[in-house]
Design a protein around this nucleic acid. Sequence first.
DNA 1: CTTTTCTATCTTGTATGGTAGACGCTCGTT
DNA 2: AACGAGCGTCTACCATACAAGATAGAAAAG
Lengths: 213, 213
Amino acid sequence: MALRVVGALRDDIVTMTLRPGDVISESDIAGRYGVSRQPVREAFIRLAQQGLLMIRPKRATVVKKISPEGVRQSRFIRESIEVEIIRRLAGHPGADAGAVLGELIVEQEAASNANDSRRFHTLDELFHRTLARLIGVEYAWQLIDDHKMQLDRVRYLTLGSSSSKLAISEHKTIVAAVTAGDVAGAEAAMRAHLARAEVLLSQTIAAHPDYFE
Amino acid sequence: MALRVVGALRDDIVTMTLRPGDVISESDIAGRYGVSRQPVREAFIRLAQQGLLMIRPKRATVVKKISPEGVRQSRFIRESIEVEIIRRLAGHPGADAGAVLGELIVEQEAASNANDSRRFHTLDELFHRTLARLIGVEYAWQLIDDHKMQLDRVRYLTLGSSSSKLAISEHKTIVAAVTAGDVAGAEAAMRAHLARAEVLLSQTIAAHPDYFE
DNA sequence: CTTTTCTATCTTGTATGGTAGACGCTCGTT
DNA sequence: AACGAGCGTCTACCATACAAGATAGAAAAG
């Protein structure tokens, strides 16, 4: 049941129901979920290790503000790994890689046309995860996923401004380069695709400066 | 004081004082360190999140066996990031990069000549961390450090077989390529340097099969 | 002798009480 | 009026007690 608290709190944080800077306490959350303080405490520890909370001994626990530097370095990590993935994939593209990825893009177009940004986000994530799976490093994506929570908070603030058409176009470019075995082209396309998150961050900082440190 | 337990247990695990597969319990560790069960429990949670322990509900807690697949993927992550680091560094080598790294290599040679493998290991780690710092992504190295614990357990099993001379030679090759601005050469040197860990893993699995899953 | 069932014991999980530290407010002093 | 000291209150932290599940071994039945 402590895990339930973890999930609930994490959702509240990434959906900005609990906003950066908000102060919470073990007793507070315990009463809100009808459990004891102990499971809440353990949930706090888990979330603090994931960088979502900041436990201040003897004082209080606050929802961590988003660190622009941290987001920047998370982006660096993601770009490093995804570039390596795409290079290896373009170097040895499996037989069914093009088909599997193409199928995903079709679904993304459907979601985009239906203006279902939530589903598009899920499919976008699945696209990148599939790239990792195709070369047998799905665990690596799991790592990215952990560090992506910070960026997801940013993304949630700018929902609706989803330029899904552009993203789909970039996905197509990537897949084309992969199936053609064009390593350098695939790498460049991936870097361009990921670079768009940079402007997203700048815009969000300007729009919500109090959520950042 | 819970953090003290975390540190002590982590040291015991990476130094193989607590071996993979060993069963421990909260009460056991609590009595051993003269504290209550609660701090120990929180320490277990932290170490479980770091992949060193496996909490089996209502049964027991075991020191996680080393997953060859996990080590392999950790190596993939590390190689991805370090290659990206070295490429950027070779592309824009700072003025003092060569001097700083050269100084570290000198110390490594001293440690190697003195057969101080413990100090050499520290200096080796510092070398790679410095590479990250030189392009402003020290946080990225911190990530590698977390995932490196698994490999450190392997490394501890094969202490003494440290081919430090070879490592130093490879470090020199890397630094030379960086100062020369040779991006491709630096990348190749780094990949070769990291690839040696692969054979280390195979040898260790053969020598201690019961420590792996 | 084999198999099955039940119980004793060990484990983690949860709840609650007490402790020490840090902040903020009030009251006293200058 | 302005500043400082003291006290109340809130916090995370630790210790203890209780509860529930899972296993191992003994005992009983076949």
